[in-house]
Design a protein around this nucleic acid. Sequence first.
DNA 1: ATGAAAGCGCTAACAC
DNA 2: GTGTTAGCGCTTTCAT
Lengths: 331, 331
Amino acid sequence: MKPTIYDIAKAAGVSTATVSKVLNNSGRISEKTKIKIREIMEDLRYQPNVLASAMKGKGTFQIALLIPDVENPVYAQYLKHIENRGQEQGFSVVMCCTDDNPDKEARHISLMRNKQVDGFIIASQFKNEELLKELLEDKVPIVLFAHEKQDILVDSVTVDDCFGGVIATEHLISLGHKRIGIVAEDTVSSHERIRGYKFALQKAELPYDEKFIQIGGTKMEDAEHAAGKLFSSANRATAIFGTNDLMAFGVMRAARKHQIAVPQELSIIGFDNTPMCSIVSPELTSVAMPVSDLGKKAMDLIIHKIEGNDDIKQRILLLPHLVVRDSTSAI
Amino acid sequence: MKPTIYDIAKAAGVSTATVSKVLNNSGRISEKTKIKIREIMEDLRYQPNVLASAMKGKGTFQIALLIPDVENPVYAQYLKHIENRGQEQGFSVVMCCTDDNPDKEARHISLMRNKQVDGFIIASQFKNEELLKELLEDKVPIVLFAHEKQDILVDSVTVDDCFGGVIATEHLISLGHKRIGIVAEDTVSSHERIRGYKFALQKAELPYDEKFIQIGGTKMEDAEHAAGKLFSSANRATAIFGTNDLMAFGVMRAARKHQIAVPQELSIIGFDNTPMCSIVSPELTSVAMPVSDLGKKAMDLIIHKIEGNDDIKQRILLLPHLVVRDSTSAI
DNA sequence: ATGAAAGCGCTAACAC
DNA sequence: GTGTTAGCGCTTTCAT
């Protein structure tokens, strides 16, 4: 059997209270007994049972991470860096894949509460606002990751999508492009990125033209199709901003089919800087989120809340940066 | 405060034992009280505390999954399907990224044991055989995933890499290729795949030639470089088998640099069938593991062990299949 | 500086 | 059918 504090106490000829105190180094214990107890713990290979201590209110040191789909490299990155920081801080992360399905979200949340995780990092859309509010009311530590709820008082760590749209567009503009198309999926983030695009155009005093904007499905095929439309119009765009890498890959594929040379005849830029960017040819220029910092911030913030600092709510917004590769060039 | 069985018991005018019994529907309880108690639970939104029940030996319904790096799409897939099956069976998965670092492996294992996870699915190399044996001795439920230890008595769920090598090679042979190169990383799986390659050659009575085999680093650049060597030799290979997709991408890139047309002048086949296969151009033919089944089997097996069936050890070997795309063609 | 004891929320053996 | 009760392994007042 695994030894318990009782075994240690008995072996050391002290009470369990004393053992517990050296374990948490709380209370006042003489150096001597402290050392002795530590030795005995080593000898017996004592490992405290986190469950028991959790039951006394110390927490499980686990947080639940809700994401739609790990297979999506963007989310895999989130997970990686969140887990990584958790590891450093002694917190484990329990994976909850939601498939963007509100029922699954609800089930996971409920299950995780029963399992007494200390908090939640939510990186899925989380349509169920009722549930979210309920959690917030129950003072469950929550951090929204990579998308905020504009209308709810909740902590969040996100990337500044609008700014990302700005730098992507400015990069293209600086290369001399004036007719810049967009291929986007219909999500909040995408719309923010498009907002940045408009902003940059305006700043450069370039006209904004609806016909350059294609908003559609989330799959590469959707993007491919959308790009096709963009190509067929007269006076077509010389550059296209895909609001995520997958969109951009769809555009690349369409260009190939239409025999349009990238980047000579068409510049393409993506968003997310997934590992695939350097695998395709030409390598894809993309806007990179500071995923590692995002993950770190999110974990730190949730721990902060777990430790009882339910002070002020905060929205942390990190800035993305540009990674120039071979898919963009001067006109 | 969250209600406990006590609250339920009091509200129903029964003892906690009765409540516990309807919770686990064990023992004999009259339909009437059963219904009544259930109602009260609903009303009070009672949620059992898993920790408390775990302390009584019922388990935490958590399993720890050790993988080297989630960012690698292959591992992300494993995670996805394992989590998925866990969800169906009421088990959560705790993520442990090891970076293939034995220290991290050991730390995770120790931490997870303190947190009382019910079992481990290990999908990282796990160099630390001492530790593994120790766990096995302690009767900790363990399933090795995607790589076995030939010399240790432990359950495992893996794909038949050798067979994968066979079908990849046979595909190439059936297309008329006779000089087939290999670009591989130096891992157990890769060597198995190469073994399959040799086997297929032999079966087709084709000569095996050392000079076609390049074994090197795990990065795409390594593969690119290795492919370069393969190209420079006289009477060069007409097809190359990359023992995983990344290797194959490296080969594709080298081909592009050397102006060798794929698949017209060179057929390329990968292994793992990662999502990237359909993003690159030409789309990559690859050997696909039945990841979903693998994940399911692994989860089912670990649950089986957790439930106390420490009967016989088993090695489950699933067969991969070929996914033909555009990177391979007749000579 | 150390210990006794109560109890976290639940389960299960045993009693009635 | 239902209740009593003794813990699971730990923490934490409150005594001493």
